[in-house]
Design a protein around this nucleic acid. Structure first.
Lengths: 339, 339
DNA sequence: TTGTAGGCGTTATCAC
DNA sequence: GTGATAACGCCTACAA
C-alpha cells in the first residue's frame, strides 16, 4: 500500500502543475508577488500529498541547522538539569532544537561530543567545561562557532561565561551562621582536582568570609573529601572535641552525604549542628527540619547563556566576551539555630 | 586570516591527488582493496587540512540521521529525567544523538514537536504520550517510522509500550501497610483528566488491593485533588474523626505535597501517620525519618525502550508490538509504623 | 510572477 | 584498486 516514496518539493510542484522554485518560495513565505490562486493550489497539493519539508536538505544548503549543542559536565547536579531546561525553553521559542550531552567530567568524552556535534553542523554550543580542553575550545573560536560557557571559567579564553557568584554564596552562608552565633564553622567540599570554578570559589569564598570575621584560625574547619567517603569522614571528625557547630555543604551532592552522616550518627539538625546547603534540592524546603539553602539562579543563568549564544548566532556584532556572575538566593528556613 | 572556507571531501581529494570517491571509501572504512600508500596519503591530507565530514550531507544521502527524538510529557517528574538519561546512555554507545522535547502534557505541543523532529528526519521516536493524539501516532506508523511509547498506554494502537507495573506498585504499598497493622489507608492522587495510565492504574490497583483485603468499604480513603490544593485538602480531611492512619503518595510531585501537609499540620511521620511514596526521590532515603518508597525501574524501562526502538530502526523483523511492564522496587525504610 | 539550472557535501553505481 | 557521474531534497540567482 503505502510506498514510502518520500514526497518532495518536486512532487508538490508536479501535483500543483507549477515549478519547484515557486513552491520553495511559498514555503519560505516569499509570496509578495505570488498569485492568490497559485498559493491556493500549492496549499491544496501540500495537504493532498501530506508533504513535509526535509530540513536536512535545507540545512545543507543554508548552512544552518537550527540546532545547538549543549554539553554538561555532570548531569547529576540538579543545577545542570535546571539550566538545561531553561535553555531548552528559550530555544523552543525560536524553534531551535537542543542536543544535550553529558561528559561525566571526562575531557575525552567532551572532545568526542564536540566533534560529533560539529560534524552535525550545530549552530552553536553551550558548554559546562569539563576542563583541560583548551585547544578544543580554541578551535571552535577559530572557526567562529558561537560558544558560551556556563558554570566554569576557562582562563585566558575569550568566551562569554555565565555562572553563579560562588564566593558570594559562601559568604552568605558564613554571614548567616555568624549572625546566629556560630564561631566554629565547617565546609564540606569534594576534592578540587582540576579547575572547578564553583568548588574552588566556594572554598576561597568561605576562607575569605571566615577571615573577614576573624575566624580563620581556630574557627574554620574544611572537610575536603570524595563524596563516597564524605559521611564517614565527617563522622570521624565529629568525634573529636574540637569540632564545628555549623556545617556548610558546598553543593547538592555533598549535601546528601551530610544528611547521610547526620542520620547514621544520630545527629539532630538544628540542635546538634546547624546546616546550610548551597543548591536547593526539591525536598529541602519540606525536610524535617526545613533546610536553609542558598539557591543558584539557574533560570537566570540559562536565559543569559541562551541570550548570549543567540547574539553570536545572529552574527550581530557580539559583545566582547565577559564573565557574567549572578547572585544566589538565600532561602532562610529552620536548619540553623544558635549553638 | 581564517577564511571559513569549509573544507570538503573534494579538498582532501585534491590535496591527496586522488578522487573524491576514494576518499569517501576511506571515510567509510571500505578499504579492503585500498593501497596502503593511498590510505596513508589520505590520512595525512585529512590531518593537514583539518577536515571533518559533514554529517548533514551524509544523512541526506543515506536517509539516516543517527538521531532520535524523545518526547516527554512532564519533565518535572524525576522518572522522566531518569529514563531520558538511560536512553541517552544507550544511544551514545551507538553514536546516536537524542533530541529531547517536553510537552507539558499539551497535545498541541506534542504535535508540533513530532512534526519538527520528523522534518529533521530523526530515525525514530520514544514518546511519553500526552494523550489525545491518536491520529498523529497513526501517521507515524503509516510512514513506518520507528516508535516506542513509554509510561502510558495508548489504546488500540499497535505500538510497543514499556512502563512500570503500576497496579503492582499500589498493591505493594497496601500490602506493606496492612502487614504493619493499618486498616485505614488513604491514597493521594492528582485528578485523572484524560487517560494517564500510571495514575489510573495506581488508583485501580489501590482499589483492587483494598478490596482483596476486605478494606474497600470503611478503610479506603481517596484524596483526588490537583497538586496546588493537595496539602490544604489533606489538612481538612485529617481534621475529621474518620481518617486514615496510613497514606500513599501516588508519585513524587504528590509526595512533596504530602510532606508539605505534614509540616504545616505538625504531623509526625511514622508516629501520627505512616507514609509510602511511589517514586523514590533523591532525599527520601536520608529524610527524617527515611521514607519507605516504591521506586520505578526507570533504567530498566529506558534500556528496554531503547532496545525496542533500535530493533525497529535496524529494520530487523520487529517483534509484534506489546506492552512491557516492569516490577517496581520496594524500598523499606522508616516511615511506616504500626498505627 | 514563474521557471531553469546549478550547487550544498556525501555516497552509490559502475566503468576503467 | 580507483575514479567519473549521478543522485539526495532544497535554495537561489538569473532568465523568461
Amino acid at each position: 500500500m503505502k510506498h514510502d516514496k518520500n514526497i518532495t518539493i518536486a512532487d508538490v510542484a508536479k501535483h500543483a502543475g507549477i515549478s519547484k522554485s515557486t513552491v520553495s518560495q511559498y514555503l519560505n513565505k516569499r509570496f509578495e508577488y505570488m498569485g492568490e490562486e497559485t498559493k491556493q493550489r500549492i496549499r491544496e497539493s501540500i495537504a493532498a500529498l501530506g508533504y513535509s519539508p526535509n530540513v536536512l536538505a535545507r540545512s545543507l544548503k543554508q548552512k544552518k541547522t537550527f540546532t545547538i549543542g549543549m554539553i554538561v559536565a555532570n548531569i547529576l547536579h540538579g543545577f545542570s538539569t535546571q539550566v538545561i531546561r531553561t535553555v531548552e525553553d528559550a530555544c523552543n521559542e525560536q524553534d531551535i532544537h537542543v542536543i544535550v550531552c553529558n561528559t561525566d567530567e571526562d575531557p575525552k568524552k567532551e572532545q568526542k561530543y564536540v566533534q560529533m556535534l560539529e560534524a552535525k553542523q550545530v549552530d552553536g554550543f553551550i558548554i559546562f567545561p569539563a576542563g583541560d580542553n583548551e585547544e578544543l575550545y580554541r578551535e571552535l573560536l577559530d572557526k567562529d562557532i558561537p560558544l558560551v560557557f556556563v558554570d566554569r571559567i576557562v582562563p585566558d579564553l575569550p568566551v562569554s561565561t555565565v555562572l553563579t557568584d560562588n564566593e558570594q554564596a559562601a559568604d552568605m552562608a558564613v554571614d548567616h551562621f555568624v549572625r546566629c552565633g556560630h564561631g566554629k564553622i565547617g565546609l564540606a567540599v569534594p576534592p578540587l582536582k582540576r579547575v572547578m570554578t564553583p568548588r574552588s570559589e566556594r572554598l576561597s569564598g568561605f576562607q575569605k568570609a571566615m577571615k573577614n570575621r576573624g575566624l580563620e584560625d581556630s574557627g574554620m574547619f574544611i572537610f575536603e573529601q570524595p563524596l563516597a567517603g564524605m559521611a564517614d569522614y565527617l563522622a570521624a571528625a565529629f568525634q573529636k572535641e574540637d569540632k564545628p557547630t555549623a556545617l556548610l555543604a558546598s553543593n547538592d551532592l555533598t549535601f546528601i552525604e551530610v544528611l547521610q552522616f547526620c542520620r547514621q550518627e544520630g545527629i539532630e539538625i538544628g540542635r546538634d549542628v546547624s546546616i546550610i546547603s548551597i543548591d536547593d534540592m526539591p525536598l529541602a524546603g519540606v525536610y524535617n527540619p526545613a533546610i536553609t539553602s542558598i539557591e543558584q539562579p539557574a533560570s537566570v543563568i540559562g536565559e543569559k547563556a541562551a541570550e548570549l549564544l543567540f547574539e553570536q548566532m545572529n552574527g550581530g556584532r557580539e559583545q566582547t566576551p565577559a564573565v557574567h556572575r549572578f547572585s544566589p538566593v538565600f532561602l532562610e528556613r529552620d536548619s540553623v539555630k544558635a549553638p
